[in-house]
C-alpha cells in the first residue's frame, strides 16, 4: 500500500491535525442548536397561527413553562422516580438473568443447538402481549411493569451474550486450556472479556427498550409513573401538562442514551483492539 501519500485521502495533512476537531465542532453544534430552535419556533407558530387548535397543541412556550413548573413539584419527581425505579429494577433483573443463561447456554455447544429454536420463537413475541397476564397477576402494582420490562429487555441482552460467547477465539481458549486454566478460570479470563463488548451493546439496547416498556405499562395498565401521569393529564384536559410530561420522557430517553453510550465506551476503552472488529 502506498497510502503514505498525505494528499491521497483528501485534505488531511499533519499540520492542522490536532486543532481541527476542536474548531470544527462548534459550527456543527451551532447548526444543531439552530435546528432545535427552528423546531421550537415552528411549534410555537402552528397553534399561534391557528393551524392547529391551541386546545390540542399548545404553543411551545406554554409547554416549556409547564415543564419548568413541573420541575418544582415533588409529585413530578416522585413520578420520575417511580418510572426510573421500574426501569432500573427491570433492567437489572433482565441483565442478570440473560448473563447467567447466556454464559451457560453459550459455553455448551449442545445447549446452544438445543435452545436455538426456542429462543428464536420466544424472542419475537411482543412483550405487550403479556399485558393482560400482568394485570391479572399483579394488577397496577410495579410488578406488572417489571414483568414487561424484564421480558423485553432479557432477549436483547441474551442474544448479544450468545453472540459474544460464540465469538471467543478458539486459539486463546485452547492456550488457556494448555496452561491448565479450569472452566471457571477460562470463563473469567477468556470468555468474559471477549463477550463484554457484546454484553454492553446488549445492555444499551435493553435500556432503551426497558424505558419504552416502563412507560407502556404505566400508560396502559396504570402502574405508577410518568406514563400514568400522561394518561391522567390527557383525560383530565391538562393539555400543556401532558405535552410537558411527553417532553420529560424524551429528556429521560436522551439521558439514558448518553449514559449508556458513555458506559459502553468506558467499559471498552481498555479493550479497543477488540472493539473495532466487534461492534459494527
Amino acid at each position: 500500500m502506498s497510502s503514505d501519500d498525505p494528499a491521497s485521502g483528501g485534505p488531511a495533512p499533519s499540520a492542522g491535525r490536532d486543532r481541527r476537531p476542536v474548531r470544527r465542532l462548534p459550527a456543527k453544534q451551532l447548526l444543531g442548536l439552530a435546528g432545535i430552535v427552528g423546531f421550537l419556533a415552528t411549534w410555537e407558530l402552528i397553534p399561534r397561527l391557528g393551524l392547529i387548535d391551541e386546545r390540542y397543541l399548545p404553543p411551545a412556550s406554554e409547554v416549556i413553562l409547564a415543564l419548568v413548573r413541573d420541575f418544582g413539584l415533588t409529585a413530578f419527581w416522585i413520578s420520575v422516580g417511580e418510572t426510573m425505579a421500574a426501569w432500573f429494577l427491570g433492567l437489572i433483573i433482565a441483565v442478570a438473568l440473560a448473563v447467567l443463561l447466556g454464559f451457560v447456554i453459550g459455553s455448551s455447544d449442545f445447549l446452544r443447538k438445543a435452545t436455538n429454536s426456542t429462543v428464536e420463537f420466544l424472542r419475537p413475541i411482543p412483550s405487550v402481549a403479556l399485558i393482560p397476564l400482568a394485570v391479572l397477576l399483579f394488577g397496577v402494582k410495579i410488578e406488572s411493569s417489571l414483568m414487561l420490562i424484564t421480558y423485553a429487555a432479557f432477549w436483547q441482552v441474551l442474544i448479544q451474550v450468545l453472540y459474544g460467547v460464540a465469538d471467543v477465539d478458539m486459539v486463546a481458549n485452547n492456550t488457556a486450556k494448555t496452561y491448565g486454566l479450569g472452566r471457571m478460570a477460562r470463563i473469567r479470563y477468556v470468555v468474559f472479556p471477549t463477550a463484554l463488548p457484546y454484553l454492553m451493546t446488549g445492555v444499551r439496547l435493553a435500556a432503551t427498550v426497558a424505558l419504552v416498556l416502563a412507560i407502556t405499562a404505566e400508560l396502559v395498565i396504570g402502574s405508577p409513573g410518568l406514563g400514568r401521569e400522561i394518561a391522567l393529564a390527557q383525560s383530565g384536559g391538562a393539555i400543556s401538562g401532558m405535552y410537558a410530561l411527553v417532553l420529560a420522557t424524551g429528556l429521560i430517553g436522551v439521558l439514558i442514551n448518553v449514559l449508556m453510550r458513555s458506559i459502553e465506551k468506558k467499559t471498552l476503552s481498555w479493550h479497543s483492539s477488540v472493539r473495532s472488529e466487534v461492534i459494527v
Binding site: 494528499a7 495533512p13 499540520a15 492542522g16 470544527r24
Partner: peptide
Amino acid sequence: VYQTDGGDIEA
C-alpha cells in the same frame, strides 16, 4: 491549496 484550520497547505 488545501484550506485547513491549521493553515493553508499547498499540495
